[in-house]
């Protein structure tokens, strides 16, 4: 199928990574559908990408915490997309999550429950149709829990495990691809006030290109900057006795 007829749905379309990913797909002649909480914000991004690329970009209201609405949301789309990408995420504030139950819950639900459950709906629909690709943007923070962000990290770990389980199930006799993306540090508004080391910090545009490239090469798990694979390998291999004493 020519790319011109393909459609990608991006959940979390107003985030920096969502926008950059949408732009990368539109530039490669895809039809882009953006989903997110605020219709006005989505329309702003949809207009921008449409003007820049001349492609059709549509906006669809979607609340990742409203899991009851998921089936209605999917059925209301103009068509079942060829590719669905979840870039939904909430870093939250770790210290606040330690004392505020609602905030902790919001982090867990936004990073794990919501994304897993919506991709579950697409997985079944893709199975019924016989093809489709599922991309989940998870995080290196899910590779090992750290004191400074373990609510976020554990939810991402759950999401990564969900994606690997789904991939495992669908790998045998189906043409459905499931790809996990671990961006590492990215220069986004989420990280606006943090000083990030340039060598291991990607731009949102790099993430978008990596997702498009990873899909084309049918990759399973990608680290946007490959150095992160080695960084996380070392972190994962460290004995817990030592790891637990580090200030991370």
């Amino acid at each position: 199928m020519a790319a011109a007829e393909k459609a990608v749905l991006i959940l979390g379309g107003t985030s920096d990574i969502g926008r950059a990913t949408a732009l990368a797909f539109a530039q490669s002649q895809w039809t882009v559908r953006l989903a997110g909480r605020s219709l006005a914000d989505l329309q702003r991004e949809a207009d921008d990408i449409s003007v820049r690329t001349g492609r059709q970009v549509t906006a669809h209201p979607f609340d990742v915490l409203d899991t009851d609405s998921f089936t209605v949301f999917v059925n209301a789309l103009p068509d079942l997309p060829d590719v669905v990408i979840s870039v939904v995420g909430l870093l939250g504030e770790q210290p606040r999550a330690e004392t505020d139950l609602d905030h902790a819950k919001e982090i867990l639900r936004t990073n794990y429950e919501g994304p897993a459950l919506i991709l579950r709906v697409f997985a079944e629909q893709f199975l019924g149709r016989g093809y489709g690709s599922i991309v989940g943007v998870s995080s290196v923070a899910g590779d090992r829990g750290r004191g400074s962000n373990y609510f976020y990290g554990s939810a991402k770990a759950g999401f990564s495990a969900f994606l690997s389980g789904l991939r495992n199930r669908l790998a045998i006799n189906s043409s459905i691809q499931v790809m996990t993306v671990k961006p590492g540090f990215v220069r986004t508004k989420m990280a606006e006030h943090r000083k990030l080391p340039p060598l291991i910090t990607a731009t949102p545009a790099e993430v978008g290109e990596a997702i498009l490239g990873g899909l084309n090469r049918r990759r399973d798990v990608i680290y946007v900057r490959s150095i992160w694979f080695f960084v996380m390998l070392i972190i994962r291999l460290m004995p817990e006795r030592i790891f637990k004493r580090l200030k991370l």
């Binding site: 702003r44 207009d47 003007v51």
Partner: peptide
């Protein structure tokens, strides 16, 4: 600087 979106052409 952040208000850099194109809206219509």
């Amino acid at each position: 600087a952040h208000l850099n979106r194109m809206r219509a052409f």
